[in-house]
Simulated scan of single mutants.
Amino acid sequence: MAKKIIFFLVLFVATFAPIQPAEAANPWAAIIKAAIKKVVKAVDLMIQRRQNRVIKLQNAQKAIENTMAKLHLDEIADWVKKQRDLYREYYDELKKVKAVISYYFRIKQIAEKEALIVEQYQKAWALFRNDKHFSAKELAHMQMVYSGILEETVKNVDVLALVVKSFTTQMSDVKRLEIIDRAAKQVDKIYDELSIFNHENKMLSLSRAKDELDAKVVKELYGID
């Protein structure tokens, strides 16, 4: 019973000990969050506008098809000939708009993963910097690694902002898609590196546990099975 009381006291202190905000430890987190918020807001607005355009184009397409259905075979030939180009324009524009919307959704997914990187960093760093199993030198090294990860994330967010702006410029679809693919691969790489780094630090802390009770506290703290 006494051991259980001690365990929960240690866990409480480790979890709720006063710490400085993660942003104070590294200003990149606040910068990234603000940038991502702008990108997502811009993308959401563009998606809404493009979806409204899709609805208008689909309604126009349906109206043309309904008109064709009402005409007799001997009347439709001349009308179809006149409307064929217009119908093709509607269809081509509809395809382009849908393609752009798919770009927007992909950009938003990348931005959301970048936001997840910041969240994972803040959560892990808040725990590590209060973990007595790490020395000041090791914590300084962790902060240096995190700074590098977040700097790369900032660059990736800047790339996304550039892609969003590109929809109002003359950038080709091929070039735009190339940039989006590169940003997606980079954010996946950064997320994987962060996950591995966090996991290694958690296991290092566990390996330094002094006894069974200490190990149990570490497992609870980091969610280790």
Rank of each mutant, 00 (worst) to 15 (best):
I5P: 07
I5G: 03
L9I: 02
V10R: 14
F12C: 06
V13A: 10
F16W: 08
Q20F: 12
A22E: 02
E23A: 05
E23I: 01
A25I: 00
A34C: 04
A35F: 00
K38M: 08
K41N: 12
V43E: 10
K56S: 14
K56F: 12
Q58R: 15
A63P: 09
I64C: 00
M68I: 03
M68P: 07
A69Q: 15
K70Y: 15
K70V: 12
H72I: 00
D74Y: 13
W79E: 13
V80T: 11
V80I: 00
K81L: 07
K81V: 02
R84F: 07
R84I: 01
D85A: 11
D85S: 12
L86N: 15
Y87I: 06
E89R: 14
Y90H: 05
K95Y: 08
K95G: 04
K96V: 03
Y104L: 14
Y104E: 13
R106I: 01
Q109N: 07
E114N: 09
A115E: 06
V118E: 02
E119T: 11
E119K: 12
W125E: 06
R129N: 06
D131E: 09
H133G: 01
S135I: 09
E138F: 09
L139W: 03
L139Y: 02
M142Q: 12
M144L: 14
M144S: 14
V145M: 15
Y146F: 10
N156F: 02
D158G: 13
V159C: 13
A161P: 00
Q170W: 11
V174T: 09
V174E: 15
K175E: 07
E178K: 11
D181G: 07
K189M: 10
I190A: 02
Y191T: 02
N198C: 11
K202L: 02
K202A: 03
M203D: 10
L204T: 13
L204N: 10
L204K: 14
S207E: 08
R208K: 11
K210Q: 07
D211A: 01
E212Y: 01
V217S: 07
K219Q: 04
L221N: 10
